[in-house]
Computed example of a mutant assay.
Amino acid sequence: MSDPQELAKALLKVSGPLLIGHLLNWGLFGVLSVQVYIYHLAFPNDHIRNKALSYSVYVLEIVQTMMLTQSAFHAFAEGFGNVEYMMEVGNLWFSVPILSGMIFFITQMFYAYRVHRLSGSSILAGVVIFFALVSFAGAIATGALSRHVGDLTGLLSKNTFITLGIWNGGNAVCDAIIAICMTVSISRRSTGLPQSQALVNKIIRLTVETGSLTAAVAILNLILILLPDHAGYFLAPIGILGKLYSTSMMSVFNSRIVFSDGGIKTLTSASAVDLPRTNWRAEQRGSANRPVRVAVKVTQEQLSFPSNEQTSFWEDKTPVRRADSFQLPTR
């Protein structure tokens, strides 16, 4: 691109959004680091599967942040005032589409597992996996095309816009399905206990907020890609999608922390991310004929009952039957 005017116009379309994307990426990396640190402190004995998932995603985020930092230093510091440095693709073809696509796929598989456990439907989980694979394929195709373009203006080509549309469109559809399925599945689990229902409402709110946020950013990115002037505005939000997915996943893990009057509790005996598939209506019908076990200890001075300790409905708090226990039949 030898014409200075055309080069200046193309530079304005990509340099500003690229700088904003770098700044947002660094800020969200700090948020993610705090989430991972809280998880490390709160759940030292968590399941090895959850630890491997959390730390592997965080390692990928570290690698992506380091590569993006090198790209920003090369463009805005080492090549300050040099337009050719600014327009180089460098490692952006790998750090943004490939690494972000891997992070998307891992987190979406995590949510597909949750959808399967909550709803008990393999079809819904299969739909989530299908759109996750479509999105991952679009990310790989975007990275492959970006690898062979001459400069950043090559990202504004028609073929690249098609692969970007597949990538972000698949993410938007996948996030919408995940948010709807999980919200409906969790809302059906009515416990009838105020404390337990409050935790259910908290999980529903967290699911809607995180799912809506990632879906909204993916849709915004898709809109910016389809703008008629083919500007590079999509370079700003496209670099932060990975951090949003990772942070939303870590917020789900950390949602098992319960704040009570006596301090902070962590639900380690039953994970909020690994729920058993149960038929709650059948349990409620069967509980009508089930004997209630009550542990009572009577002395001359006091009468003590089981404590009203604040717990989660994910935990099994059935009193242990002892020798001085008796059963009260229900009517």
Rank of each mutant, 00 (worst) to 15 (best):
L23G: 12
P4W: 12
E84R: 10
A72T: 12
I162W: 03
N171M: 15
N82Y: 03
L60W: 00
P329T: 13
Y245A: 09
F130E: 04
I203S: 04
A295W: 04
S135T: 01
D274P: 04
V96A: 07
T207Y: 08
L227T: 06
P228R: 12
T268C: 01
L156M: 08
A215T: 13
A272S: 02
L28T: 10
N91E: 09
I180P: 04
R114K: 15
Q197M: 09
G150D: 15
Y233R: 15
A139P: 05
S190N: 14
S54G: 13
I204P: 05
L222Q: 05
H47R: 13
L213M: 11
H74P: 01
Y111A: 08
V83D: 06
H47K: 10
T210Y: 05
I162G: 01
L156F: 00
E78C: 02
W93T: 02
F105T: 13
L12N: 06
D229H: 08
N279C: 09
L24D: 00
L68F: 05
W167V: 01
H40T: 13
M182T: 06
S196D: 12
Q35Y: 05
G263F: 02
V292W: 07
N45T: 10
D324A: 13
R114L: 14
S33A: 15
G79M: 01
E84T: 12
S119I: 01
L124C: 00
A295V: 08
Y245V: 02
Q284F: 09
T330K: 09
V134M: 11
S251Q: 13
V14S: 10
D46I: 11
L164P: 01
A137S: 14
F259D: 05
N289A: 09
N289V: 05
L206D: 06
S119M: 03
G81E: 05
F136Y: 13
Q300M: 05
N279K: 04
A42Y: 01
G143N: 12
Y39T: 03
R147M: 13
S255Q: 07
V296K: 03
T160C: 02
T268N: 14
I223K: 04
V296D: 02
V96L: 03
T214M: 10
F94D: 06
T268M: 07
F136L: 14
I238W: 04
L193C: 03
A272P: 08
A282N: 00
T330Y: 00
Q108R: 04
T153R: 12
R293W: 10
S135I: 05
L220E: 00
I62Q: 07
K243P: 06
G242A: 12
Q197G: 08
T210A: 11
V296P: 03
Q70E: 09
V292A: 12
F234M: 05
G170R: 02
M67F: 11
V34F: 08
G143K: 09
A218M: 04
S325H: 08
S100A: 09
Y245G: 00
L220Y: 07
I178G: 09
G21L: 06
K158G: 01
G120V: 12
Q70L: 14
L53C: 11
A75S: 15
I48M: 14
M109E: 05
T247R: 00
T214F: 10
H116D: 03
F313I: 14
L275E: 14
L222A: 13
S100Y: 06
E84C: 00
S196F: 14
F110L: 02
Y37H: 07
A42M: 11
S251M: 15
Y245C: 07
T210E: 07
